[in-house]
Each structure stands twice: as C-alpha cells, then as structure tokens.
C-alpha cells in the first residue's frame, strides 16, 4: 500500500542520453516552488496496469498528506489514473512524478507524467472530449484537465510527452 518505486528495470529509457531533456525531475518551474522538508518528489514507473494501481495508491497517500478533502483526493487520483494510463497505452510506458508545491500559503499536488512515446500530434484535438486512439472513452486528457487547476502539455512528434498537472488546496 505504501508508495515506492518498484524494483526491476524500467523498459523505457529515461536517462540523460535522451536529447529531448525532460527527465524524471521536472525542468522549468522546479526552482520557483521547489519542495522542501519531507516533500521530496517521488517518481514511479508506469509500464502496465499493475503499476497504475501503485501510482493511484501513491497519489492518494500524497493528497492525504497535503490535506485535501475527500472530493479533491478523488479528483487528483482519478486524473493521475487517466494520465498514467495514457502514458503506458499511448506512450509505451513512462513515469509519474509527484511533487508538493507551495504557493501563497497554499499547498498542492503536482503530477508530472512523462512518456517517450510518439507524442501527441494535435494537443488541442486530444484535449477535446471524445477523442481517443486507445481504450477508454476519449475523456482521458480533457477530463484530467478539468479535474486539475493547472494543466500543461509538452509534446513533440517522435520525442514523447510530458504533462504537468497541479491542483491546490482551497485555503
């Protein structure tokens, strides 16, 4: 039940050899609200639907830790489930990193979901309800965006996709 990186090799390369950057720990805004204390980011691999369960548990534990109410917990865990499933179905596997940002006295959860798949050809279209190329109802990306406060997609054809999604506590 406890979150923790699974043992065994990751069948997706995430090492520094990749030219596309975007390794496990986030680029860009990492400096502005870097986690402190016990709020160390944790990265989990997602290669199959068993990993998905592990990620859900980890995200649930993280939302409890940050102090989200039951409904907000459910929103974030559901968004994580959608994004992580996308990463292994469309991206051929990847990682989910959980960060604990702080901003103006609020705490939050940031999910950084990365895969080295083919990338999303048209993000706008992918965010539209009903769009799907895999299993599901095509609500994955657009739905996950509605469940989170901030949502950012970086993708490049042939070079993978990184999604950063954040939800803040209300107070």
């Amino acid at each position: 039940m406890l979150p923790g990186p699974r043992k065994g090799g990751i069948d997706v390369k995430l090492s520094g050899e990749r030219t596309t950057a975007a390794p496990t720990v986030p680029p860009a805004t990492a400096g502005s609200d870097a986690p402190r204390g016990g709020d160390t980011p944790v990265t989990h691999p997602v290669r199959n639907d068993e990993d998905l369960i592990t990620v859900r548990h980890a995200v649930r534990a993280a939302t409890v830790e940050v102090g989200f109410g039951l409904v907000d917990q459910t929103r974030v865990v559901t968004a994580a489930s959608e994004l992580a499933r996308n990463a292994y179905i469309h991206g051929g596997g990847g990682t989910v990193t959980i960060e604990f940002p702080r901003q103006a006295g609020r705490r939050g959860i940031r999910l950084i979901v990365h895969d080295d798949g083919p990338g999303i050809p048209d993000v706008e279209v992918a965010l539209t309800d009903g769009f799907t190329t895999g299993a599901g109802l095509g609500h994955g990306l657009g739905g996950a965006r509605r469940l989170m406060h901030e949502f950012e997609v970086r993708t490049e054809a042939g070079k993978g996709t990184t999604i950063r999604a954040t939800r803040w506590t209300t107070q």
């Binding site: 039951l70 409904v71 917990q73 459910t74 929103r75 559901t78 959608e82 309800d129 109802l137 609500h139 657009g142 739905g143 996950a144 509605r146 469940l147």
Partner: peptide
C-alpha cells in the same frame, strides 16, 4: 460514493 459521482460528472462521464 458522492466524491466518485462528482469526479465522474466533472470528467464528463
């Protein structure tokens, strides 16, 4: 459960 129903509705499902 209520939180599940709310989340599903927000997801558009």
């Amino acid at each position: 459960r209520p939180p599940v129903a709310i989340t599903l509705a927000e997801l558009g499902l």
